[in-house]
Design a protein around this nucleic acid. Structure first.
Lengths: 223, 223
DNA sequence: CGGTATCCCCGTCGATACTG
DNA sequence: CAGTATCGACGGGGATACCG
């Protein structure tokens, strides 16, 4: 673990745990509900598996995470101390939203966006039992321009290959524009009006689609 | 600055600034009101001056700190973005207080404790124009056992050498005990009763002394 | 007081491969 | 799916000296 600051200040004692790269982002993933090793990886794609493993051990040793096994099933769940970090993640995210400036192109990632959106679907806002949404990112690198969200009654799957189902509705978007919508920096109606995002499909779906995805980031920008 | 996480998440963008060692502790010092280079050093004694300089430059570049000069007078002041970090520091400190466990011996530091106490003196609680408090830490390393706080109408000085003034009141304490009081983990009356802290002097001073120092840590533990 | 320069080591992290 | 093993490069940051 990061070495001691040799200070009695609680901020220092806390930062001994969190001043290492990736640690607090891993906590964020856990707070957002990921529990399995490979799900955590999906939320942290640029983190090596060995480092993820190390961090999970460290957080376990620190009493923030508990490794829970049930047969083959292995989950990492937050302890009470870990759950209390939600306030830290939230405050930090609010600050980041407000003061962190415009995203760099390198911060845009369709895979990550899809992963984050997929876990924040509000089924009750969707007027069909099952829908398939295709996303087309006009400006993404070749090979990650097309994505499908297959939304059924009890799960949401992300695909980067055509799953074969009929597409119910299609979203054609500038990657930056949709990311900014997701971050709460832009509104759906404005993006649709300006044409950076286009929704094609039956009017019932076109109209409601913006409400299908409930961003955990959008409300917190505070600004 | 710490390299990019390549994530659009505001938490990630924020942690690109704060996942490097010492950065958030420096912010804490600024939030607590230190503005000058050598005052910042006193609050971060184990940070090398060159690293402090680097961090100040980084925070300036990030729009969190502004370097303000007035003749020879140089101060580092928080920008609005920096002031907004107070919420982050506070939340993190609250978490640290609650979940960080018992302090290690290495976290105890009389110099740091004196420095922190000296800047949180409530003059209005002191029934004299001027007092000199001597602190004797029974278990501190030789050479840092005796400290003096010289409290006048308009300033508070910390000395590690006898300043020569008559001592108004003397506090003999276990370093850990006084640190825990300062952190809000122990109460003055309990420490006095158990004898880990002893106050000697006129009754007026003995009685009121615990109220002279208002810990910014104590109220926030939330536990 | 308010910093910069230098030097070098060690630990972190990234990449990749591989196992049960 | 759930991780561990290995390895090398890089640079962060600790220590110290020094300058205006």
């Amino acid at each position: 673990m990061g070495s001691s600051y040799r200070q009695f200040c609680p901020v220092a004692k806390a930062m001994e745990l969190f001043d290492e790269r990736w640690t607090l982002l891993l906590v964020r993933e856990l707070v957002l509900g990921s529990e399995r090793f490979n799900d955590l990886r999906r939320g942290l794609p640029r983190m090596s598996p060995s480092l993820l493993s190390t961090r999970l051990h460290q957080l376990t040793a620190a009493g923030i995470v508990q490794r829970v096994t049930d047969g083959r099933d292995i989950r990492y769940v937050l302890t009470p101390a870990g759950r209390d970090l939600e306030a830290v993640v939230e405050t930090l995210g609010a600050w980041g939203s407000r003061w962190t400036g415009r995203l760099g192109d390198e911060d845009l990632d369709p895979k990550l966006l899809m992963w984050d959106m997929h876990r924040n679907v509000d089924r009750s806002a969707i007027p069909l039992e099952q829908v398939v949404v295709r996303f087309a990112f006009t400006d993404a690198p070749l090979g990650s321009r097309s994505w499908w969200l297959v939304i059924t009654a009890d799960e949401v799957d992300v695909c980067d290959l055509d799953p074969g189902f009929d597409v119910s509705v299609e979203v054609t978007a500038d990657l930056r524009a949709l990311t900014e919508i997701w971050r709460g920096e832009q509104r759906w109606p404005d993006a649709l009006r300006s044409g950076t995002v286009v929704i094609d499909g039956p009017v019932m779906l076109r109209r409601t689609l913006p409400g299908w995805f409930v961003s955990p980031l959008a409300a917190k920008s505070g600004g």
